[in-house]
Amino acid sequence: MEERLALRLQLFRDGGQVESRVVDFVAGELDVLAAGGQVVTEDTAGMLTSHLVMALTRLLNGEAIEQFLTDEQVAAELAGHPEAVAGARAMAERARAALGAALPESEINFLGMHLAALAQRSHV
């Protein structure tokens, strides 16, 4: 893993607000993305990393995750990236299985947007 992205994860781990198992899960997901050919760096996946760590932490802490209605622009963007939607759903299922954290549809949509952006950056 790229040094700056590893540092982001280490800061979450050292901060004491995030369970190690969440950081480990996210690190594993980043490895899956990299193994699948994505360019996973701080620049390309930093926001995805933070978003996923914090969403999973909120779920595990029993905090409500605000439900957002997916606007037409986001829906249209996701429709053009079915692989990102499928990847987000698979990631959410792995999070549910590994951590017991069931991401709501709005979070899955946000993950899909992150994955679509990552794919675009990886193939430029």
Rank of each mutant, 00 (worst) to 15 (best):
G87C: 04
E83Q: 15
A97W: 01
A79D: 13
V85N: 14
L78P: 09
G87K: 03
A88Q: 13
A88E: 14
A76W: 07
E66F: 10
E77R: 10
Q67F: 06
V74A: 13
A76S: 15
D71S: 08
M91I: 03
A86Y: 05
A102C: 08
T70S: 14
A98C: 05
A95V: 00
F68H: 12
E63G: 01
E93R: 15
R94A: 10
G87L: 02
E66T: 11
A76V: 02
V74M: 12
V85W: 14
E72T: 07
R89V: 04
G87M: 02
V85E: 15
A86C: 07
R96M: 01
A97Y: 00
L99N: 07
E72Y: 09
R96G: 05
A101N: 04
E63A: 10
A101V: 01
A76H: 15
A75F: 06
T70L: 05
F68L: 15
V85H: 12
G80V: 03
P82W: 14
G80H: 11
E93Y: 05
L78H: 10
A64K: 15
D71E: 09
A90R: 08
L78K: 11
L69M: 06
R89W: 07
A64V: 08
P82C: 01
A64L: 11
A90N: 04
L99S: 01
E72G: 10
V74R: 14
A86D: 15
A76P: 03
P104R: 02
P82R: 06
E72F: 06
L103Q: 06
A101G: 06
T70P: 08
T70G: 07
E93K: 13
V74F: 10
E72C: 01
L78V: 04
A92V: 10
E77F: 15
E66P: 03
G100W: 00
A79G: 09
G100L: 00
A102F: 01
L69R: 13
V74W: 06
A98L: 04
A92H: 11
E66H: 08
G80E: 11
A92N: 12
G100E: 00
A90C: 05
L69E: 13
A76Q: 08
D71H: 10
H81C: 06
E66N: 08
P82G: 10
A64I: 05
A102Y: 00
E66D: 11
L69P: 05
L99A: 01
E77P: 03
